[in-house]
Design a protein around this nucleic acid. Sequence first.
RNA 1: GGGGCGGUAGCUCAGCUGGUUAGAGCAGUGGACUCAUAAUCCAUCGGUCACGGGUUCAAGUCCCGUCCGCCCUACCA
Length: 528
Amino acid sequence: MAAPSFSVTTPIFYVNDAPHIGHAYTEVAADVLARWNRQCGVDTWSLTGTDEHGQKILRTAVANDVTPKEWADKLVADAWIPLLQTIDIANDDFIRTTEERHESVVQAFLQKLYDDDYIYFGEYEGYYCVGCEEYKQTDDLAQGAGEFEGQYVCPIHGRPVEVLKEANYFFRMSAFGDRLLELYETQPDFIQPDSLRNEIVSFVRRGLDDLSISRQSFDWGVRVPWDDKHVFYVWFDALINYISALGWRADEPGELFQKFWPSNHIVGKDIARFHAVIWPAMLMAAGLPTPRRVFGHGWLLVGGEKMSKSKLTGIAPEQITDVFGSDAFRYYFLRAISFGQDGSFSWEDLAARYQAELANGFGNLASRVVAMVGRYCDGRLPAASDVTDADARIHSVVESAVERATAAMDRFAIHEAIAAIWTVVDELNGYLTEQEPWKVAKDESQTARLHTILATAAEGLRALSVLLAPVMPKSTALLWTALGADAAIGPLAEQRIDQVATWGQLPEGAEVSALPPLFPRIEVDQLG
RNA sequence: GGGGCGGUAGCUCAGCUGGUUAGAGCAGUGGACUCAUAAUCCAUCGGUCACGGGUUCAAGUCCCGUCCGCCCUACCA
């Protein structure tokens, strides 16, 4: 049997404008899943990247008086790569659709479909919205007013649509309806969450049309290999990134592809259909395995409305990380929002959770334990001796948290996993208050008891560091070092989640060093 | 037009196949404690479960209707 492996992708982001917290949310979720699996000892691979073709980018570039490639290069360098730094993403690869390694795979993939008669030449006429990059049915359109009087306008972009008549290549997607339904049936978690699955299933049940997959009205795209007057439609080009990055070839699948395909796709629910219908149909046509899972997360609501780039309600991730840090960003969005559902964002809620959960809960817990080991044990980790029910209870809470968090992460229920882990924070704070080590320390006959309490608390922090490392890599690393764990048992990133509940890993005498506040209080006037 | 989702404490949300006095976190209030980032711990206040009917011994939980918010999707023209 092959070694367990896990691969996860984000959508590749359209480089037409700057990243907002919705993009960052997707990135963080995928990153946490990747880091978690990696620390479970699973061979893991995570992918993100940028989507750089299409008419919209061409037009934006022209408007800015640069070539589309120059425009894309600039945004990738100035905005999208830095985003990954801002929110601390540890991706294994970053693919750009303008890279040769991608374009050649797109051509090979579609050539194969063409050779096997899944692609044919046809004609299409319809209303086309440049903003959406897609054809619209008339009922999807609004009547224009004012300067656009008498024209159809796209309700999303508020701009008139264009009538296009194109002779294009079409993909025979209509042939795959039954096989897609069978896929949804036999693999119920192929599309998650269930609400989204239901939508997709009923969409496919109504029957699928063939898809126009090429354009000849402009040339910013991957050239159709058998007809150089055409370029591929941007979505067809883009979806293939998931296997081009793995080095797939028509004749030679390649090592990465063999090992990591099929991947798990994390996407916003608005593009779930591309990933759960079109993409698997393309893969079926090519005779390749369909994705492991397509998970559509919800939208971030700001003031009750979907945050969107076209409505300019976007918040830049740095606005948050500059004040609260990347760990808090990662924690907040994954903890406060049920993964898969829409979630409200507000500065008030962010600040409140930062204060209550990170500063007062986890951060302060770390401070008090480390400070007591310093004060009462000269900074040397003490050993536990006679274990009371209270001590044993800490251990069992950790065991239960690991079990529940692992089960939740397997379902991509990230918020549930974090909630399960957080029971350890709450339990430890209560344990310390009840055991009153500061009182025990005043009685010299109770030194053994004092040591047991502090050793138990430190073990709890060790477990928390490991369990929370995927979510908050920076602060847990600080805590890990302060506990002396780095020197005693090795780097945090190498600690296994499936072994974290084994008690007593921190050795007696480990050097516990001072710890600055992990989540310093934020003054109100620092808020954006 | 059809289908789906949501409307539960000030805020954000749990409440599975109907079953004792509807829950959590935060915020508020009172108390305990001092190791810690004026942190922690305990207690407590707070809801006609959108509205109106119905089924049932029993409904937030099922059925019908209405209102509000959102999503998917058709047709006539």
